[in-house]
């Protein structure tokens, strides 16, 4: 690739420092690369070169097709592309594209808590995303635990559930457990009532609010939040013990 400012060929050590001691008995002329090899060994080098060239081209082709929009080739060979790219070369570079997210999606939770005196109390709604936002405010190094954990767990939940909140496939049930474990952990950490008792059930909802458009744009959007309320989930004893610490 031309964009490189390579050393001139044949002078790999061309540096301002003193000449390297190592080359002292190296004869002049080409001694390295394929030129230094006898024909028999050159075959080996040629094979290696061909193999690496093929693998590089195939790999880049596969990765390109995996990030490209659906097209004729991906429709015909989608399976092969997936098998090559997943799991270790998976990638998603649609960063803030095609459109940046224009809504604040907050995950909120309330719980039925069994208190030490035997009574059951329902807590108020706790806005976990607002807590995350507060933790991020003024931070030069926001932790993945506040920036990604809940946000991506909710994304995962939404993409693996239908509009009726029923799980789709194995990942749907994984995402449900994951989200429940996060909210229970967070309730034990940050909710005063939950801290005192044992959480028995939780109800999770998302509240989606439009980001107010900039003053200079003259656009108008609704500022009332839209809720998506999930059914009450019973918390398993394992989760209720707050194994997460």
């Amino acid at each position: 690739m031309d964009a490189y400012d390579e050393e001139p060929a044949g002078d790999p050590a061309g540096s301002p420092g003193p000449p390297p001691v190592v080359g002292v008995d190296a004869p002049a002329g080409p001694r390295t690369g394929v030129a230094a090899l006898s024909p028999r060994y050159q075959v080996g080098a040629a094979l290696a070169l061909a193999l690496v060239a093929v693998v590089v081209c195939v790999h880049l082709g596969m990765v390109f097709l995996s990030v490209a929009p659906a097209n004729t080739v991906t429709r015909q060979h989608g399976k092969a592309i997936e098998e090559w790219v997943y799991p270790e070369f998976e990638q998603n570079w649609k960063l803030f594209a095609p459109n940046p997210l224009q809504q604040n999606i907050a995950v909120q939770v309330r719980a039925d808590v069994l208190m030490p005196d035997g009574s059951t109390t329902t807590t108020g709604w706790n806005d976990l995303s607002v807590q995350d936002g507060r933790a991020i405010d003024g931070s030069l190094l926001p932790s993945h635990t506040v920036q990604n954990e809940l946000r991506r767990a909710w994304d995962f939940f939404v993409t693996t559930h239908g509009a009726d909140n029923r799980p789709i496939g194995m990942r749907g049930s994984l995402s449900e457990q994951y989200l429940r474990r996060i909210v229970v952990m967070r309730m034990y950490e940050q909710d005063a009532t939950s801290e005192k008792g044992t959480i028995q059930r939780v109800e999770v909802r998302s509240s989606t609010t439009n980001v107010p458009p900039p003053d200079w744009s003259g656009e108008k959007v609704s500022d009332t939040p839209v809720y998506r309320v999930l059914p009450w989930w019973t918390v398993t004893s394992d989760e209720a013990n707050g194994s997460v610490r």
């Binding site: 907050a106 995350d132 991020i136 980001v211 107010p212």
Partner: peptide, 8 residues
């Protein structure tokens, strides 16, 4: 202006 990406 997203809560998750606005530390300042």
């Amino acid at each position: 202006h997203l809560d998750y990406f606005s530390p300042w």
